[in-house]
Structures are given as structure tokens and as C-alpha cells.
């Protein structure tokens, strides 16, 4: 998708995605612990990487959580480095995967990119916490619990919502179609 988007448009879409990293979690703030369960900040980062490419995804992945922490206090400072590492990987991997994978169908491209990015992001975030940010205090059980047990609704939400949002954006001609001749995606 990136090749058909101008650099100015990529830049502004990235800005909008960073803003969504702050606005979207606020919709969930009224629900206790919803941030950890529904992971609303991950959705704009993944989408930015998919649509604009890895450089913009990386910027969105770092700037989104940092700006949110500065302006709204969430995520808290203790969680911020691990989360920024995770979202940065999301942005990079989705961008690279979308450039590399061409199955001639949009949905497989999206799902392969998303699942790879989510898994790598969780692994990098876990490794960063275990080795750098919470060295000696972070266990495998804590990683599995935080990444997959607590957050399973958020993972399902990402896998259901991002292809739907991408299709809606293509339909509204806000992003160019990846496979213009493809019907019934």
C-alpha cells in the first residue's frame, strides 16, 4: 500500500494514528483495567504500519505511548518502556511484512502480517522487560499471563477490527486498494 501513498499523506496518516493512540484508550478508560485487556493503543500502531510502512509504523509505535504518557499519564512511567518497545516492533513488523507478503488476497496478507507482528512484539516486549526494564522481577508466567491470558479479548479485537477498518478505509477510498482488481475479499 505504501508505494501508492504520497510521503505527505503517509506523514499525516501517521500523525492521525499517533493522535488515535491517545484518543482511543480514553474511550476505554471508564472501564476498569480495560487498557490491559483490550489494548486499544495497539490498534492505531498496527494500522499505521500496515498502511504507511515500517518507518512510519516505528515512529507511531514510539511516539504514541510516549505522547499519551506525557499528556494523559497513561500508560504509567513504569509500563511505558516495555510498551513502547512492543508497539515499535508492531509498527516495524507490520510494515515490513506488508511489503514482503503478496498472496494476491488482502485478508491473508493482513492476517499473516498482523499475527507475525503481534507475536514478535510480545516476544520483544517480554525480553525487554525481563532483561532491561524489570530485570530479575519478570517471569515467564507473568509474560504469558499479561500477553495472552489477560489480553486475549484485545488480541481477538485486533484480529477482528483491523481487517474490518482496512476494508472500510479502502472502500471509502481513503487508502489505495492493495489489489484493485480483487472482488469479494
Amino acid at each position: 500500500m505504501k508505494s501508492q501513498l504520497s510521503e505527505v499523506k503517509c506523514a499525516v496518516l501517521t500523525a492521525a494514528s499517533i493522535a488515535l493512540c491517545i484518543v482511543l484508550p480514553m474511550a476505554f478508560h471508564a472501564i476498569p483495567n480495560a487498557g490491559n485487556i483490550f489494548l486499544p493503543m495497539h490498534i492505531p500502531v498496527l494500522l499505521c504500519g500496515l498502511v504507511c510502512g515500517w518507518q512510519y509504523g516505528l515512529l507511531c509505535g514510539i511516539a504514541g505511548p510516549v505522547l499519551s504518557a506525557v499528556l494523559t499519564g497513561m500508560p504509567p512511567a513504569a509500563v511505558l518502556p516495555g510498551m513502547a518497545a512492543e508497539t515499535a516492533v508492531f509498527g516495524i513488523v507490520t510494515g515490513i511484512m506488508m511489503k514482503m507478503i503478496h498472496t494476491k488476497r488482502l485478508l491473508p496478507d493482513l492476517y499473516i502480517s498482523l499475527i507475525t507482528a503481534i507475536l514478535l512484539g510480545k516476544v520483544v516486549s517480554g525480553a525487554a522487560k525481563a532483561l532491561l526494564f524489570s530485570a530479575g522481577e519478570y517471569s515467564m508466567a507473568a509474560w504469558v499471563s499479561a500477553s495472552f491470558v489477560t489480553a486475549w479479548p484485545g488480541l481477538l479485537l485486533q484480529l477482528a477490527l483491523i481487517p474490518a477498518v482496512t476494508a472500510a478505509l479502502e472502500k471509502a477510498k481513503l487508502i489505495p486498494a492493495r489489489y484493485p482488481n480483487q472482488r469479494g475479499r
Binding site: A16, A30, I37, F38, L157, V165, A168
Partner: peptide, 22 residues
């Protein structure tokens, strides 16, 4: 119930954001 109620807002918010960015 509260979580499900937040979901119908998400797709229109994305569309609105991308439209403004466009």
C-alpha cells in the same frame, strides 16, 4: 456490556480520523 458498547465507536472514529488526515 460496557466494553461492547465502546466497540461501535471504534471503526467510525478511524474513518473520521483518516478522512481528516486525507
Amino acid at each position: 456490556e460496557r466494553a461492547k458498547s465502546a466497540l461501535p465507536v471504534v471503526i467510525p472514529v478511524f474513518l473520521a480520523a483518516f478522512r481528516r488526515a486525507d
